[in-house]
């Protein structure tokens, strides 16, 4: 019989494998125990514990940081699904704290105020897996080379405007498809242009997909948004402000879960879209001045 003390923890397969288990699911932002339970009951595959959803961060302004450990632990105690939490870009000490709290995934997130305008966290140094945002393939591969075990397209968080999520998913998908059609000797220049490591570029060209799971995020507010993102190639969906900034959160949460699973069946998505009450009001991304766009953070 094998002993559990002969085990290897924190390897790439274990970290990336965790994200594989989330595929086809919805990860929901929650700010308290009550919301976490609503998310779990609605069929969320994980919750993101944070003090303010992106829409409130945007409205209230100021510096946004990692959540209070007490708040994260209360949510961990309340639900059995995985609990994720966010750290500021580059803030490795916040990440060390979250690792001691045993959260299941860390999101090194542009939604919080960056702590380092040059470097991201060296995520290989942690046993806990990280998800990072990306607006294009090069950014995704740079994060993976730093140890990210999961990528989410950034979109524009806290807006309820899905257009940037669409742009980023199409961009990442398009750049992957372009690599798969290249001659081997063209991949060297592609790596230079993408500003990404050649080995990862070659791997993507050969497999036609990222080496890690790709979720989408930022502006998803309806079952139809979720279904569209899944059809554009997302492995799953993060919904931040879209659920708990809407009229009937429990119903909308369950509806988005159904639409994410049955994204190819418009009849089911239509049924899920009925009678959900008011959607989050939202902001058009075009109305947000560029310096205030969260997707611009990260490099």
């Amino acid at each position: 019989m094998s002993k559990a003390n002969e085990t290897e923890v924190g390897g790439a397969r274990v970290k990336r494998g965790m994200a594989e288990m989330l595929k086809g699911g919805v990860i929901m932002d929650v700010v308290n125990v009550e919301q976490a339970k609503i998310a779990e009951d609605a069929g969320a595959v994980a919750v993101m514990a944070l003090e303010r959803v992106p829409a409130d961060i945007r409205a209230q302004g100021g510096v946004s940081r990692m959540s209070d450990p007490d708040m994260i632990e209360k949510i961990q105690a309340a639900v059995s699904i995985p609990v994720m939490a966010k750290v500021r870009i580059g803030h490795f000490a916040e990440a060390q704290i979250l690792q001691t709290l045993n959260v299941d995934y860390i999101d090194e997130s542009e939604v919080l105020t960056p702590a380092d305008y040059e470097h991201h966290i060296n995520k290989w140094n942690f046993t806990i897996p990280f998800v990072c945002g990306a607006t294009n393939l090069g950014e995704a591969l740079r994060r993976i080379s730093e140890g990210a075990a999961m990528i989410r397209s950034k979109g524009e968080a806290g807006t309820g405007d899905v257009s940037n999520a669409t742009t980023h998913m199409r961009k990442i998908g398009g750049e992957i498809r372009r690599l798969t059609s290249m001659r081997e000797d063209e991949l060297y220049v592609a790596a230079k242009e993408l500003q990404a490591p050649y080995a990862l570029v070659k791997e993507v060209a050969e497999t036609g997909k990222l080496p890690v799971v790709l979720f989408t995020a930022g502006g998803i507010a309806t079952p139809a948004d979720a279904a569209m993102m899944m059809q554009l190639g997302a492995d799953g969906v993060f919904i931040g402000s879209g659920i708990f900034k809407s009229g009937d959160a429990a119903k909308r949460a369950a509806a988005c879960v159904k639409a994410t699973t049955y994204f190819t069946d418009p009849k089911i998505v239509a049924d899920a879209s009925r009678g959900l009450g008011e959607a989050m009001v939202g902001i058009n991304v075009a109305d947000i001045p560029v310096p205030h766009r969260l997707a611009e953070r990260g490099w």
Partner: peptide
């Protein structure tokens, strides 16, 4: 049963 994600692992199993 084995804990949260930081306790997830690989092992050789008979």
């Amino acid at each position: 049963a084995f804990g949260r994600q930081t306790e997830s692992f690989e092992v050789d199993l008979a």
